[in-house]
């Protein structure tokens, strides 16, 4: 058995994936292949995850310099971020339920236009 197969390839995450991204992907895969339904695949995924989160494996990956032959395209980076809307902070989330009238806020909410977008060339 090949214990050295690239753990990131097994998990289906790109080379530069953060610890967080690796963890989320692992959780997704475990949902798809739980141990009671597909023990073989689960073992493979779990082994790959253990290897991918090994500090030495992460360190080796982080110590790779960027690929100067293929620098990232702006559009590719932005397209990737389109798929990941920003998180809602807890304070913001809870404040959505406020009931007290704040006139300044209410006025801004109806009249606001984003002139910054116009200035920045949209």
């Amino acid at each position: 058995m090949n214990k050295i197969a690239d753990p990131l390839k097994t998990l289906g995450v790109p080379e530069g994936a953060s610890e967080e991204a690796v963890r989320l992907r692992y959780l997704e895969l475990v949902k798809q292949f739980p141990p009671e339904r597909d023990p073989e695949r689960f073992r493979e995924i779990h082994t790959a995850y253990e290897a991918a989160k090994d500090p030495l494996v992460i360190a080796r990956r982080l110590l790779e310099p960027p690929d100067s032959d293929a620098p990232p395209r702006w559009s590719a980076v932005i397209d990737e971020q389109k798929e990941e809307p920003p998180a809602l902070g807890v304070d913001l989330l809870l404040s959505l339920g406020n009931c007290e009238e704040d006139h300044a806020e209410a006025r801004d909410g109806t009249e606001e236009r984003d002139a910054t977008e116009e200035r920045d060339g949209l």
Partner: peptide, 19 residues
Amino acid sequence: FAAKLVRKVRIDRAAIRVA
């Protein structure tokens, strides 16, 4: 007002268009 705020921050995402 809260809905507009959420829309601006999370759905419309002006930052993407500016970027």
